[in-house]
Design a binder for these strands. Sequence first.
DNA 1: ATAAACGCCTGGCGGC
DNA 2: TGCCGCCAGGCGTTTA
Length: 274
Amino acid sequence: MPELPEVETVKRSLNRLVKGKKIQKVTVHYPSMIEDVKLFKTVMEGAFLHNVERYGKFLVFHLGRYVLIGHLRMEGKYFIKHPTDPLDKHEHVEFHLDDETVLRYHDVRKFGTFAIRLKDTFLQEPPLNKLGPEPLGDQVNGARLKKRLKQSTRFIKSALLDQNVISGLGNIYVDETLFCAGVHPETITYTLSDQALETIACCAQDVLTKAIMLGGSSIRSYTDSLGIHGRFQQELKVHMQEGKPCKYCNHPIDKIKVGGRGTYVCTHCQAKRL
DNA sequence: ATAAACGCCTGGCGGC
DNA sequence: TGCCGCCAGGCGTTTA
């Protein structure tokens, strides 16, 4: 499942491969993933792909007066193909470019979304208006997390998955971040000190930075996009490691449920502190 | 304010 | 070998 590092990798690939190209025509094979198909076609056809940005797990394609906001959700990928290549059953949107290539959006589970917004106001509107700060950069630190979460009775894992608290983390990287920080995922958030939250913020940065360097993770269904094969899955220390010995203490990794999510934890390195 | 439940989907899995 | 039911999972929406 693409999280911040995978989306960042896709963004970089798109900027390398399709930036500056003109969209001649779009073909929609599965309309319900697009908020407004009519507007989508009107805006996209004839537009230039100026630049692609990432906000949390969202991709923002700049088209001039408008932007296209896309989300890959669980399994979204982009491929560049020739127009005559047979259409895969999971390719739902085609962007025909002016150089005899076609950018195709591929999504087995059809969870991905597309929406058009005005360039000048898209940050003030859904779905980006409530998005929390980027974990990379100086907006996320122990003091700010404490300010935001000092009264929260939720589990820390749930708070870190909340895109309004911090943007871009998903199930994989929250598990890895909390392992790095030595914090049990079921720790009640308000009990964490500034210092512990600072450690969590630093660990999130470390984990994400390393994952981006390696092109993200390619686990489960999320294998690659635009020819990019992530290598970070080899670095995962707890996620998907149930029963395997902890890299640091050899205690077997447990799989539990936290807030309904499958969660991997070393109960020795991440002891519960109540 | 928070949280649980649900809906969206389908490949992969275990069970038989 | 094949069929069936269940599960994962981000996020928006609905309900408690």
